[in-house]
Amino acid sequence: MKKITVKICFGTTCFVMGSAYLQDMLETIPVKYGSKVELIPAKCLGLCSKNGEYSKAPYALINEDIIAEATAEKIIKEIEERLQNEN
């Protein structure tokens, strides 16, 4: 099974707009999913300027897919969907 890679952006914009509240996931995700999911805390992914929209921050990347206005709930939902599709 292919590992799911989750990158959460902790650049200044994402951090201030809400990813400060996602720091907790660095601890909870490995406990919950073990080796199935790799969570990488990222320095600025550049998505806020690429999309020209800081207002959609914080951003996360799940494999190659961009998650805008990321919340813990959104990220977990995306992970679960991918895990189900694998099975």
Partner: peptide, 17 residues
């Protein structure tokens, strides 16, 4: 703090760099 954060965002300051 929120106002300071808004200035950092508007000025594109990457603190960690």
């Amino acid at each position: 703090f929120e106002e300071l954060g808004a200035i950092f965002i508007a000025k594109n300051i990457e603190i960690e760099k």
